[in-house]
Structure formats: C-alpha cells, structure tokens
Amino acid sequence: MRKLWQRGKFHLSALMMLVPLPFLPDYFSPKPIFVPPEIRRDVAVGPFPVTLATYDEAPGRMPTGERMKEYRIHIRPADIDHVRGVFLRVGKPRSLRTAGALAFGNPYEREADVTVPDELAGTEELWVTMEDWSGGVHQASLPLGEIFGGKR
C-alpha cells in the first residue's frame, strides 16, 4: 500500500505541473483577458489638445467613504515638454490651489483619481486645468455625463 501511495503521489504531482498549460497562451498574450468598454473624449485646453479616457464603470467607493473615478489624460507628444501639470476636478475651480486632482504617471498618459459627489444633479462639469512651464493656466470643461460612465 505504501509503495502504491508513493507512486501515486509522484504521478499526481506531475499532473499538477501540466494543469496550467492550457492557460499559458492567454497569460502571455498582449491583450488583457477582460477590459471594460472605454469612453474617450477630445478636449482643447487652451493650445493643448488632449484626450480624456475612462472605463465605462461606476465610480468606486474608497475606504474614506468618497466616490472616486479614474481618468487618463493623453497628451500629444509634441506638447509634453510644454505641460507642467494637469488637474481634474468636478466643478469649476476657484484658483490654481483648488484646481483638483493632479495627474501623475507617464508623460504620454497621465492618470488622475477625481472625487465625485454622492448626489449628482446632471449639470456637473468636469474641469481640466493645465499649467504650462511659462506659468500660463488653461482651462476647459465638458459635461460630466459625457465622460462619466457606469451607473450614477
């Protein structure tokens, strides 16, 4: 009986090495297995044309209780050296100090997590504020409903 168990244990461990083989092509493929649909909008923020993108899903609730929505900002390669900072905010900012969430990450595709109010009236706007290296501030807005996605 003991010899049978030792041989069975060996064959079982060899079988466990073969189980992941059918999943390897998906693991090494460049496309993600599941990606929700994306919402993209082009906006001209002063002299800088940018593309805002987000996934078509509802904002997530953070441990602090705030609802957050992630946006990606695509900047043209020709404009990257001119842009100092990109800020996103729901509602018009009063000044550069209250410009909103600072976008971070790769210069070509920056990300910003924007706080979304719990109650939406449907007239809110997403404001994009860009600061260039000469100190100029450029702003643009678009209705939040156009680039919100998911359930409200």
Results as ranks from 00 to 15, higher is better:
58 A>I: 04
68 M>D: 00
98 T>Y: 08
139 Q>G: 05
34 F>M: 00
1 M>L: 11
45 V>K: 03
149 G>H: 12
1 M>N: 12
28 F>E: 04
62 M>S: 09
140 A>D: 02
142 L>C: 09
128 V>G: 04
17 M>D: 01
28 F>T: 10
90 V>L: 08
151 K>I: 02
24 L>V: 15
148 F>A: 10
34 F>D: 03
67 R>H: 13
139 Q>P: 01
23 F>N: 00
95 S>G: 05
3 K>V: 03
140 A>Q: 07
62 M>W: 08
16 M>Y: 15
20 P>Q: 10
103 A>S: 14
111 E>Y: 04
80 I>Y: 14
68 M>Q: 07
59 P>H: 07
39 I>R: 04
73 I>S: 10
43 V>R: 01
119 E>V: 14
6 Q>F: 15
53 A>M: 13
100 G>D: 13
27 Y>E: 12
137 V>W: 04
89 R>N: 10
112 A>R: 09
21 L>V: 14
96 L>G: 08
116 V>R: 02
54 T>I: 07
23 F>K: 02
123 T>I: 01
29 S>G: 14
21 L>P: 03
24 L>K: 11
146 E>H: 02
10 F>H: 10
105 G>Q: 08
16 M>S: 08
70 E>Q: 03
124 E>L: 07
4 L>Y: 15
124 E>R: 13
102 L>V: 13
37 P>M: 02
92 K>R: 15
45 V>D: 03
147 I>Q: 00
65 G>E: 04
52 L>H: 06
141 S>T: 08
42 D>C: 00
35 V>T: 14
73 I>L: 12
30 P>G: 10
114 V>L: 10
37 P>E: 08
91 G>A: 01
83 V>P: 06
117 P>N: 12
112 A>P: 06
30 P>D: 14
67 R>P: 01
104 F>Q: 09
126 L>I: 04
135 G>L: 02
46 G>F: 11
132 D>Q: 10
124 E>V: 05
117 P>R: 14
147 I>N: 00
142 L>I: 13
36 P>C: 05
21 L>T: 11
133 W>L: 12
14 A>M: 15
33 I>G: 06
32 P>I: 03
29 S>W: 12
109 E>F: 09
131 E>F: 00
87 F>C: 08
118 D>C: 02
82 H>I: 08
55 Y>S: 08
28 F>H: 12
8 G>N: 13
19 V>L: 15
64 T>F: 09
30 P>H: 12
44 A>K: 13
22 P>H: 08
62 M>E: 05
29 S>I: 07
123 T>N: 12
131 E>L: 12
83 V>M: 03
2 R>A: 06
32 P>T: 10
94 R>Y: 05
86 V>K: 01
30 P>Y: 07
143 P>Q: 03
137 V>E: 07
119 E>H: 11
94 R>C: 00
140 A>K: 06
105 G>S: 12
97 R>Q: 10
47 P>C: 06
62 M>A: 11
3 K>C: 00
108 Y>L: 14
135 G>C: 10
94 R>I: 07
120 L>S: 00
147 I>S: 01
52 L>Y: 04
44 A>D: 14
